[in-house]
Computed example of a mutant assay.
Amino acid sequence: MSAAAASEYGEYGYLAIPDPECAPFMDAMLSYPPGPTDLESKRKQFEGMISVAKVNYGAGLPKESEYIVKDQEIHVAGPPAAKIRVRTLVPTSSEEGKTYPLYVWFHGGGWTLGNLEVDDYQLRQLCVEFGISIVNVEYRLAPEHPSPIPQDDCYAGIKWAVENQALLSADVKKGFLIGGLSAGGHITAVLAHRARDDPWFEGRRITGQIMQVPGVCHPEAVPEEHKSSLLSFKQNEFAPGLAAADINWFYEQLGGSPSSPDVSPLLHPVHAGLPPAVFQICGIDPLRDEGLLYGKILKREGVKTRVHTYPGVLHGFNYLLPDIAAAKRWEREYRDGLKWILDGASDA
């Protein structure tokens, strides 16, 4: 897309001008036949992406002696009641009784795809680098388990983590973060509001949220006053990897009312009082402008907020192109954001 064409799409249209390092990859993707439309095939295709991502991130894995990995089953009260799996990552230490900050993570995949493996290797790196206990939640997937089941499962995962700080060698007073990518970023936004308003969290409040390429507003629920500024859905309608049609399909599988804050957290009536937020947003992504708008709204309502943009790259590009400059900046700014929150988000 040329600069002149990009200018037709508002303040952030320039972000869709392809990054030179990403452009050949996009051209190759566009030469492939359209992706599958049935759920089973989409899940198989996503498993292939996970495998590639694990190869790409595998070289950076810390030594097995530096952390402890355990899969646990936890109970979700429902309805419907169920058991879900979480993966816990706890740093090892020679110091008896040492405790760490807590980070609860929700994977992406449009609420319908993915599992604990999506971000497993990245989380292992962060566990050791930051000395932080991590709980990776494997929520039940739509459409078999429609909204609000994925969100409720993740909320149960947060509460389980708090209740089991001793098991995790964690102390939420040292830092208590939640985060996710794509659908996981959406769930993060939803649950940050829930936890803010829940007396259960008195004395153990979430201290930060990480939202990477989040969807925060159903396409059918965009407020009239924002329709003229949310132009990325049209500009990036046919973006490789995640097109507008894909997003519409994912929302159909998720279910729920488009205007519900569980589906469109941007529509929550009050955002003040949320924990400090870090956004990472890609330029060639239909979700771009709603993420940028949500960041502006949080800032306006007094939430300490950092927003990072990555011009000319695709939704989820960092999984497949970890060696390009934009991906290296993504990883650096992700870590900077974690540190900023853990240090008390002293500068908005």
Rank of each mutant, 00 (worst) to 15 (best):
W330Y: 15
A189C: 12
Y334A: 00
A170M: 01
N164D: 05
R196D: 03
R140E: 00
L242K: 03
E220G: 07
L267P: 03
G157F: 06
H268C: 14
P219F: 07
C282D: 04
W340Q: 02
F130R: 08
I284P: 00
S7P: 03
I17Q: 10
A59R: 13
A195G: 04
G291A: 06
I247G: 01
Q72L: 15
H308K: 08
P258M: 13
C217H: 07
V118H: 06
V76W: 08
I74A: 02
G10C: 06
S264P: 07
T188F: 06
S2P: 03
G48M: 10
A3N: 09
A192N: 07
A221S: 05
V263E: 09
W249I: 10
Y103V: 04
K328Q: 15
P276V: 12
Q125D: 03
K296Q: 14
S264K: 10
I247K: 01
E11F: 11
I324H: 04
E224F: 10
E96I: 15
F250K: 00
A3Q: 13
E301K: 07
G110Y: 09
I178W: 00
T92D: 08
G60A: 14
I206Y: 02
I284N: 01
L342E: 02
P269C: 04
G35A: 15
E163N: 11
V213A: 13
H145F: 15
N248F: 14
H271E: 09
G109K: 09
A28I: 08
V172S: 15
T112R: 09
V55I: 15
